[in-house]
């Protein structure tokens, strides 16, 4: 399969330099220095390619898919689960079901139809997701920690799960049907356990490859592995074992920091390489085109807040 990427910034959505400078001044951001959220959006967009189908979940993927459409993958088709196919995003949506997300889309249908007509039928190259927990085989937990059950269904006398998250939404389905998983996450050791307590979505191989524990032997008929874009590095599923391996590392990040922030003994991918620092053009587009109000990009990770102190 020949992959097409619009790698020449001349083909990207244009941003005027003077306007950009004025914007940075107004918002009090350094025109050259990128933040963690900007890095995540840019790194996710770089994983995509043109003419692919990007099924985007809510949260960070909104900015990730928009970034892709304005740079490397101008002809990629974005799908959102409320019924949207191939919108032209002018303003970042805050929901997978809002009018901003539906602008100039090809068709606008309903939720069951979107998963059926597009995902089940195979028009889902990348399943772009966020998650609360990610384990060694790329399983995401976005449901609960500290026991799944609510009070009346529990046996341990507790009133409910210790932490309840949002639940699957479309994440499980997007992960089940996507040819390739693509998740964006903030990396902390507790968020990267060896085995997830609750598996909401299998973005990767689910278990060791070619065993009864892998995704296909559990009944899923699609998928080939996953890419996890964290705020420290990029993980990819090993083609031999299915385990997540460190595949690319961001500039200025120490390998040991990545290793210390996962709960399994992390291996380096055979083709491990440094991640090319975000380009000026990418930062400009992330800021001025995708999220000028900084709805997503203005958020700070714990690590960033700690570094500021």
């Amino acid at each position: 399969m020949s992959v097409i990427r619009q790698s020449d910034p001349k083909g990207w959505t244009h941003v005027n330099d003077d306007e950009y400078e004025a914007y940075c001044k107004e918002k009090g951001v350094d025109p050259e220095k990128y933040t963690t959220m900007e890095l995540l959006a840019i790194a996710a967009a770089r994983q995509t390619y043109d003419f692919s189908f990007i099924f985007a979940g809510t949260g960070l993927p909104m900015i990730g898919c928009m970034m892709a459409q304005h740079t490397y993958a101008p002809n990629a088709l974005i799908i959102m689960e409320a019924g949207i196919l191939d919108p032209k995003l002018l303003e970042v949506p805050i929901s997978v079901s809002e009018a901003r997300g539906g602008y100039m889309c090809s068709t606008l249908s309903n939720m069951a139809d979107t998963f059926g007509t597009f995902a089940q039928r195979g028009f889902c190259t990348f399943g772009m997701l966020g998650g609360a927990e990610c384990d060694k085989y790329g399983n995401l937990n976005s449901t609960a920690m500290g026991g799944y059950y609510s009070k009346s269904a529990r046996d341990d006398g507790k009133t409910g799960p210790a932490v309840r998250f949002a639940g699957s939404g479309g994440a499980n389905n997007i992960a089940s049907y996507a040819d390739m998983g693509l998740a964006m996450m903030v990396q902390e050791k507790r968020r990267f356990p060896e085995v997830n307590e609750y598996v909401t979505s299998c973005t990767g191989s689910r278990g060791p490859l070619n065993t009864p524990e892998d995704r296909w032997h559990m009944g899923l008929f699609r998928g080939s592995g996953t890419t996890i874009v964290s705020d420290l590095c990029i993980f990819r599923s090993s083609p031999e074992t299915g385990e997540l391996e460190m595949s690319e590392i961001y500039p200025g990040v120490d390998e040991q920091l990545v290793i210390d922030n996962v709960s399994w003994s992390l291996k380096k991918a055979k083709d491990f390489k440094p991640f090319e620092a975000p380009k000026h053009e990418e930062i400009k587009i992330a800021r001025m085109v995708c999220d000028p109000h900084r709805i997503y990009l203005g958020r700070k990770t714990k690590r960033e807040l700690a570094a500021e102190k």
Binding site: G59, P93, S95, S152, A153, R164, A166, I295
Partner: peptide, 25 residues
């Protein structure tokens, strides 16, 4: 399927709290 408020609040806090404290199953 989902108890979040998407981009504004990842988990709707009253729903989350009620599941955690045993008010909602």
């Amino acid at each position: 399927t989902y108890i979040g408020l998407e981009g504004i609040q990842p988990v709707a806090y009253s729903v989350r709290r009620s599941i955690q404290d045993g008010t909602i199953d």
